[in-house]
Each structure stands twice: as structure tokens, then as C-alpha cells.
Amino acid sequence: MSYNLLKGKRGVIFGALNEMSIAWKVAERAVEEGAVITLSNTPMAVRMGEITALGEKLNAEIIPADATSVEDLEKVFARSMEVLGGKIDFVLHSIGMSPNVRKKRPYDDLDYDMLSKTLDISAISFHKMIQVAKKMDAINEYGSILALSYVAAQRTLFGYNDMADAKALLESIARSFGYIYGREKNVRINTISQSPTMTTAGSGVKGMESLMDFANRMSPLGNANADECADYCIVMFSDLTRKVTMQNLYHDGGFSSMGMSLRAMTQYNKSFDEYRNEKGEICYG
């Protein structure tokens, strides 16, 4: 159902790769709600992914860019204002990648060159994106800039590795730049801490399926999926949230406020039930 929440607004969506992507869902919902948008991802992602089909479906121009490159970001905002006919009203940063995670390097044996890449791609690119937009005066007053985060920025979750450091930095950038951009241009900047979601990037995290099951058992409302996250992003892009800024907003079914749920405790207790091993001996979980 459409409510025309973004009627007449212009947006730039970074990070849509395929139908599993939250950014993909956000792009679809934004257009449903009346916005016109451009899409951006790395040249390789544009070649290897399915974003071309999304661009055709939404009548959205695709602007290949490396989000860690200031020059590329300048081109994205300049071209977006040109094809959309004016300043931008909303931006989504849905970018994250860890070479250490991909290479299965544990947190106590990180490759520091790869850590630098993790931080640059997953967090510093957000700072570059905002700084470029501000210097170009590319965002309308009360425009909304969002980035997708995760609770591992505050709490240790096994397997999330150096991406946790990147998300912590991402949220700090939103607060620090949110003050400056809000004070000077009334532009709001927030992060959304989403439930574990089986995106292409998420699937690379060690134990992701177990993590999703645990979070679902812990959350009174259950995990929020990609479509539901897209709905939340639309609200944050709309004029309904004009005075919300510098916040990390949890969208996780209540997981971030839980200690132990009945469902999780029940499953935990089951692990102590007796069972027989391969030798037929009675063991306890």
C-alpha cells in the first residue's frame, strides 16, 4: 500500500546489488511512495549484480561509483541533481564489506591492511558521502541521510569480527556529522540498527543462520526482515520525522532491549537434555 510519503522527493540509494539487498527493497518502496531516485554501486557490482534490472524497473539511472572515492561521489551527486532536476531529499548508505570476514581471519589475528579496507568501505565512505554532499550543497533543507548498522556496534556477537568496529564508527559519524549538518543546513542524519538479515553481505558472517535463529527467539516481535526495514527507511526519509537526527534507531523486534526470552531459555535448557554419543554412552549437552 502506498501513502505518497515521498511524493515529489528525490533520492540516491547506494548499495543495491540484488533482490536480497535491503537497499533494493528501499529503492522499490521509495518509488512506490512517489520519489524519483538514482542508484549507485561499484562498477564491478553493476557488472556482476542485477542492479540494471532494478534501474529499468524503477526508471532510475544507475551511476557506477566507488563510495570510498571522493571524486566518484562528487560525480554521483552532480549527476543525480542533473537527472532528477534539483537537490536531493534523501540518501541511503547500505554499504558494508570486510575482507577479514571473507578470508575467515579471526578478530585476534586480523590483517591490518584488510581492517583499513573494512573501515574505509563500511564506515569512512559514509563520512565521505556526507562531506561531499555538504560541500556541494546537494541536500535540501530537512533532507534525510541514513546508514544501516547493527547491534554489534554496542555488543559483542561472535563471528561479526571487525565489522563491529566499522558499525561503531558508522554510528559515531552519524552523531558527529549530524550535529554539524543539522545546525548549518537542517539536514538530519541517522543510523538504523537492523535485525540480522540474510543479505549477500550478511551471508558471509560466520554462524549467520544460528545468529538469526537466536535473535528471532530472543525478540518478542521476532526478527525484522528486509521489506520491513525498507518501510522504516521510508518513514525516516519522509517529513514525518523532520526532527529526528543523530540517532541510532533499533529495528530488531525488541532484541536490543532483551536479556533472556522464554523461547531462548527453553532452547538453552534443551541443550542439557541427555543424549547418547556414537559409542552409546549417555552424555549431557
Rank of each mutant, 00 (worst) to 15 (best):
A67I: 11
A30L: 04
G143M: 00
T42C: 02
V151Y: 11
L146C: 13
M97R: 08
N190M: 12
K206I: 09
G159T: 05
L221E: 09
S122G: 14
K135F: 07
A224F: 01
K167W: 00
S122L: 08
A152P: 05
S176H: 07
L115T: 04
T245V: 05
Q247W: 00
R10W: 00
P64W: 02
Q194M: 13
L221S: 11
V70H: 04
Y160S: 07
M97L: 09
Y142T: 14
H127S: 13
P64L: 05
G96W: 00
G202R: 04
F214Q: 09
A123G: 14
G182I: 00
L54D: 04
S144L: 03
L84D: 06
N277E: 10
N4M: 09
D227T: 02
G49N: 03
T200Q: 12
F237I: 12
G253C: 08
V70D: 14
I130Y: 05
I62V: 09
S256I: 02
T156P: 06
D137Y: 00
G96Y: 03
N4T: 04
I22H: 14
T197L: 10
E171W: 07
M163P: 03
I234M: 13
G259C: 10
R188H: 11
N59I: 00
D162I: 00
E56L: 02
A138I: 06
A264W: 01
P106L: 07
R47V: 08
N59H: 12
C229F: 12
A133L: 11
K243W: 03
V46P: 08
N161Y: 11
E274G: 05
A78I: 03
K134I: 10
H127C: 06
E74A: 10
E184K: 01
M97V: 10
T191E: 10
N223G: 11
A78Y: 01
S193I: 11
T245M: 07
I189S: 03
T245H: 03
M44P: 00
S21I: 02
S69M: 04
K128T: 09
M265H: 05
S257T: 12
A147M: 14
I145C: 14
M163K: 02
W24N: 13
R105G: 03
A27D: 15
R217A: 10
A230C: 11
D162F: 08
V70P: 02
L5G: 10
Y107N: 06
D231V: 05
K7D: 01
K279N: 14
F90Y: 07
G15K: 13
G159N: 01
G254H: 06
L146K: 10
N100W: 07
A30V: 05
P220M: 07
V205W: 01
G202Y: 05
I192H: 01
V46E: 12
I121T: 15
K57I: 01
T52G: 13
L6T: 07
I234A: 15
M129G: 14
D213W: 02
K279A: 15
S2P: 04
N269F: 02
P99D: 12
F177N: 08
R242D: 05
F214P: 01
E56S: 04
E33A: 12
L262T: 05
S2W: 00
H127E: 15
S122V: 12
K103D: 13
T42M: 10
A60K: 01
T197G: 03
I88Q: 04
Q194V: 15
A53I: 01
N186Q: 14
I145L: 14
T191H: 08
